[in-house]
Amino acid sequence: MRGLFIIGRTTAQSIPTMLGIIVISFILLHLMPGDAVDAIVGMSGSASKETVAQLRETYGLDQSLPMQFWNYLSGVFQLNLGTSISYSAPVLDVILERLPATLTLMLCAFVLALAGGIVIGWAMAVFAGRWPDRLLTAGSLLLYSAPNFWVGLMIIVLFSAKLQWFPSSGDESIGAGLTGWAWFLDRAHHLVLPSCALAAFFVAIYARLTRAAMLEVLRQDYIRTARAKGLHPMLIQFRHGLRNALIPVTTVAGLHLGNLLGGAVVVETVFNWPGLGRLTMNALAARDTQVLLGILLLSSVAVILTNLLIDWLVTWLDPRIRS
């Protein structure tokens, strides 16, 4: 019953947040100079005033801003995100077509960042003050300070151009006609470099956070008690130390979903990955506000759902929260 109460309370709290996101996103996007009709006219070269006026009337851009917002909000409540002007298709269909590629990239990068950061942070805490700690600290600071596009370009230069181990762009081999296991391996081969580029920044964050949490936990009284009982050092570190140190790491990791999506915009552009990142850049160039609003809305829903999942995970990790 308490779990259902927590879910209901979190859901109720998310409704005003979603409304605020919709309002702010709508206003900010409509403050951009120009609109989709201006982009269409610019790509076509020229158009008469009558043609421009007809296009604005067709797409509802001749209406006042409050009326456009009301029409959009009414459509959202009916699960209708509008029609993309640049793609001439429902916005939801356009997003769902690109969503699997972005989710795959984000999931792989998230798992890689979390696993790599925890392992590196654990090693830094175990060898605190010695040369492995200093070496790993320098490496994590480098990853933390380097922007995603630079990391992506350096990865392409080293592992694609020089060593030729991995492809530099795309999500599959064009024209290969692969199926089954060969197709899966080909997709995984293309996924390695963009996942590493997207995860690099977050590996550094989780490593530093795990190190600090582990050092704090290893100084607690119950750790000294476990050592006095003669438990194996690895059992103490993993069962009693690392599990409690993962609580702040897990909480911060849930908050980074939005950052992962923002980083995916840059990484997908560098690696020519056909996901929501490239769709966002194309929609910005075409002033397709309906697509941009749809991406922002679905991203916000994903962040809220992830935070709910993280709350449950933290509750499982820390029995004190359940009590």
Rank of each mutant, 00 (worst) to 15 (best):
Q63W: 02
A146N: 06
S46R: 14
L73S: 10
L61G: 05
T179W: 15
Q220G: 15
V266C: 09
L99K: 11
Y144A: 14
G8Q: 10
W181Q: 09
I321N: 05
L297K: 05
I6T: 13
A115R: 08
V157H: 14
A109L: 07
L107R: 02
L136Y: 08
I174Y: 15
G294M: 14
L96Q: 09
L198S: 08
A188E: 03
A285Q: 13
C108A: 15
W70I: 14
A212N: 09
H30G: 07
L255Q: 12
P132Q: 04
I295Y: 12
G254C: 05
L65Y: 07
L297H: 09
V291D: 06
A286Q: 13
A182S: 14
L246F: 12
W131H: 01
L257D: 00
G175Y: 02
F127P: 00
H189A: 10
I27Y: 08
P274N: 02
C196A: 15
L31R: 06
Q54M: 14
V270E: 12
K229N: 06
I40R: 04
D318C: 00
V111C: 12
F26N: 01
V265K: 00
I247E: 08
M67G: 03
M32Q: 13
I95W: 05
G3I: 11
A146W: 07
L305P: 01
F77M: 09
L257S: 00
P194W: 10
R208Q: 11
A200G: 09
N148M: 15
N244A: 13
D186Q: 13
L141N: 15
N80S: 07
L65V: 11
E268Y: 12
L158N: 12
A109Q: 02
L136D: 05
T51I: 10
P33T: 08
T250D: 03
V192Q: 05
A188Q: 13
Y87H: 15
